[in-house]
Design a protein around this nucleic acid. Structure first.
Length: 184
DNA sequence: CTCTGGATTGAC
DNA sequence: TCAATCCAGAGG
């Protein structure tokens, strides 16, 4: 995916990322669930302006924004829209495609459905850490490549998960009937 | 400096 | 349904 792709409106990118492949080293996963975080969204880390932690979110489209949460987990986001706007898409779940043995080893579980069905799980399975924060997804080690188009009727749009502020916003997208969605 | 709570997970 | 776990951000 080139910079043009990530510069589009964040909700459009969140939807279009479904079906694309996230690649890191030997591991590959198909994106099956995303959530959009906009600049005027009280749930977004960028809502109260730029800080040391959320700086990457204000970077150029196609930058990785990784943060540590709940004392245990990393979450991986793709920065969208124009630089300094502060919008991003959280990758919530992947369908494992390649490097599954390594994913199992990193996660410590055998069930393939339990490898990447949650934002904290997929970062562990893919080996994504704070080291990736602020890196470019366009020419870096970690990247996203196009996959098969998801039919319009197979895209489901709903309310986001696990937040209190702005919980009513329907900014979550996932592939209908996919077995690798989070919260199951 | 202290206090609060979170874009989660996994165990019960 | 709920605790673990710890750091960023806000307020004094």
């Amino acid at each position: 995916m080139d910079k043009k792709f990530y510069e589009k409106p964040t909700l459009a990118v969140a939807k279009e990322l479904l079906g694309c492949y996230l690649v890191h080293g030997e591991c590959v996963g198909k994106i099956v669930e995303t959530e959009a975080y906009l600049w005027d969204d009280p749930a977004s880390h960028s809502y109260r302006g730029k800080t040391r932690r959320n700086m990457a979110m204000f970077g150029a489209a196609g930058t990785a924004y990784v943060y540590f949460i709940y004392g245990n987990h990393f979450c991986f986001n793709v920065v969208t829209n124009k630089e300094e706007i502060g919008e991003a898409v959280l990758i919530r779940a992947l369908e494992p495609v390649k490097g599954i043995e390594l994913m199992k080893k990193r996660r410590g579980v055998e069930d393939v459905r339990q490898l990447c069905n949650g934002p904290g799980k997929l970062t562990q399975a893919m080996g994504i850490t704070m080291k990736e924060n602020g890196k470019s997804l366009i020419d870096g080690e970690l990247k996203i490549i196009g996959g098969e188009k998801v039919r319009e009727g197979d895209v489901v749009k709903t309310k986001r998960i696990g937040i209190t502020k702005g919980a009513e916003m329907a900014h979550r997208f996932y592939i209908k009937n996919n077995r690798y969605i989070s919260h199951k």
